[in-house]
């Protein structure tokens, strides 16, 4: 059976690989990662003459690279995807596409795939450098795969927001600004919002508590299910994944506990739940983008 590749994706891929930029970016990125890996090994093994080796510090290399790649996704994907449809509009190529038999969904998916393919390529090309942690153990192959899945889904999630704004705005600049704004809101905004709400709740509880003569135990209420808002925060997904891979989710639990705590089963499966939530949201954003493209 012949597999038909999305024509928009195929075309975009052809254009992007034609430029020398992609090769240079992959080279620079992997050179940087390799340097980090080599330095980590040098300071842990060679520099101290293979005495007092801190095996756990090698795991820091894995964590560092994971965070670096996560940050890269947050910074690069909005710039690529916000240009997706708005760029076609600015180039005056969108109208022709819309008069063909290509469905708006196909255009949206093709643009999203091509926009995030570079970043996914970067993430996958870092796989061998990340795999150096196998030398000392602690992180399993399946953990690396889990990170790769996380990177792909985060790219799709952020990318779908970028594509959505790209269809709503005629120009690339406002689409890019709004996408970065959305990324800030998702990663920092959700935490800040919950923190403010939590402080207000505690303040209100304390006022009542002390006004009534501080009788009984001091036990301020938590935010309960409102904390589930953090499921849309990819930074929290990363934190839950890494802490679980480290064998202890204490840090992650501490963060959630600061808002009053949440059910244990949700905490333990936070990665899977949040990934599912983000995928569903991505689907909704892409559907909305296609709808916007169809609306005249």
């Amino acid at each position: 059976m012949k597999v038909r590749i999305n024509p928009v994706y195929k075309k975009e891929l052809k254009i992007s690989v034609r430029s020398i930029r992609l090769s240079l970016v992959i080279f620079a990125y992997n050179a940087l990662l390799a340097m980090i890996g080599l330095l980590a090994f040098y300071f842990n093994f060679d520099a101290n003459g293979y005495r007092n080796i801190s095996y756990s510090s090698v795991l820091v290399v894995y964590t560092m690279i994971a965070i670096l790649e996560f940050a890269l996704i947050l910074f690069v994907v909005p710039a690529f995807t916000a240009n997706a449809i708005a760029g076609e509009r600015e180039r005056q190529t969108l109208e022709i596409l819309l008069t063909t038999t290509l469905k708006p969904e196909q255009i949206i998916i093709g643009k999203l795939m091509s926009s995030i393919s570079t970043i996914i390529l970067l993430v996958f090309s870092s796989f061998p450098v990340m795999a150096i942690v196998f030398a000392v153990g602690g992180v399993r192959f399946v953990d690396l795969l889990q990170f790769m899945v996380f990177a792909c889904i985060t790219s799709v999630f952020i990318g779908s927001i970028g594509v959505l704004f790209s269809t709503f705005f005629k120009k690339t600049v406002p689409a890019t600004v709004f996408t970065y704004g959305a990324v800030v809101i998702l990663t920092l905004g959700t935490l800040a919002t919950l923190l403010i709400i939590y402080l207000l709740v505690v303040q209100s509880y304390e006022n009542n508590y002390y006004n009534s003569g501080a009788v009984g135990n001091y036990n301020p209420p938590g935010l309960g299910n409102l904390t589930l808002l953090l499921l849309v925060n990819p930074a929290m997904t990363l934190l839950s994944m890494i802490t679980k891979q480290y064998g202890s989710m204490d840090i992650f639990k501490e963060v959630l506990d600061s808002f009053g705590g949440i059910h244990e089963s949700i905490v333990n499966n936070w990665y899977y739940i949040s990934v599912a939530v983000q995928l569903v949201l991505s689907g909704i954003f892409l559907k909305l983008a296609a709808w916007k493209l169809r609306t005249k």
């Binding site: 038909r4 024509p7 195929k10 075309k11 052809k14 254009i15 034609r18 430029s19 180039r91 005056q92 190529t93 109208e95 022709i96 596409l97 063909t100 038999t101 290509l102």
Partner: peptide, 24 residues
């Protein structure tokens, strides 16, 4: 259309083949 743009870094034949691929 009266105004239209073209893609950078795409050859004339590739441009044509891209639209042909849309129609299978």
């Amino acid at each position: 259309p009266d105004f239209f743009g073209v893609y950078d870094n795409l050859k004339a034949m590739e441009y044509m083949e891209f639209y042909a691929s849309i129609y299978g």
